[in-house]
């Protein structure tokens, strides 16, 4: 193993059913159902997936969903905005915890 993340490993994703096949199959079936067009289009769902891929820092998913977003008809401007949404959420999640910090300060400092 040269690296913890090998690009070719993404192609082996389906082999996670090597053990516990029924559970793996359920996951893939669920995933495929979720990503189909519904109230949201496939393109919109792919943009959400791209934002989540960045938020959870998954190089496999960034690789796959950048391509899928392009295939589904999104351009760089739209994908960039999706990543900014992930970034803004991550920043907000950090910053909103500072309320807890301030509560503690107010409890501690007389």
């Amino acid at each position: 193993m040269k690296s913890y993340y090998e690009p070719d490993d993404l192609q082996k994703f389906s082999t996670i059913t090597r053990v516990n096949k029924p559970l793996g199959d359920k996951y893939f079936s669920y995933y495929n159902s979720v990503m189909k067009a519904g109230a949201l289009s496939e393109r919109e769902k792919a943009l959400i997936a791209l934002a989540v891929a960045h938020a959870l820092r998954c190089p496999y998913c960034i690789d796959a969903y950048t391509r899928i977003c392009i295939e589904k008809g999104s351009d760089e401007e739209q994908m960039n905005e999706a990543v900014h949404v992930a970034g803004a959420m991550a920043a907000g999640i950090t910053l909103v915890h500072s309320v807890q910090m301030m509560n503690k300060i107010d409890d501690t400092i007389i």
């Binding site: 067009a37 391509r67 589904k72 008809g73």
Partner: peptide, 17 residues
């Protein structure tokens, strides 16, 4: 496609267009 990839399904892209 504007690059090195195959297009998504015709039906899906038609709807977006």
């Amino acid at each position: 496609p504007s690059g090195i990839y195959l297009s998504s399904s015709q039906q899906q892209l038609e709807s977006e267009f």
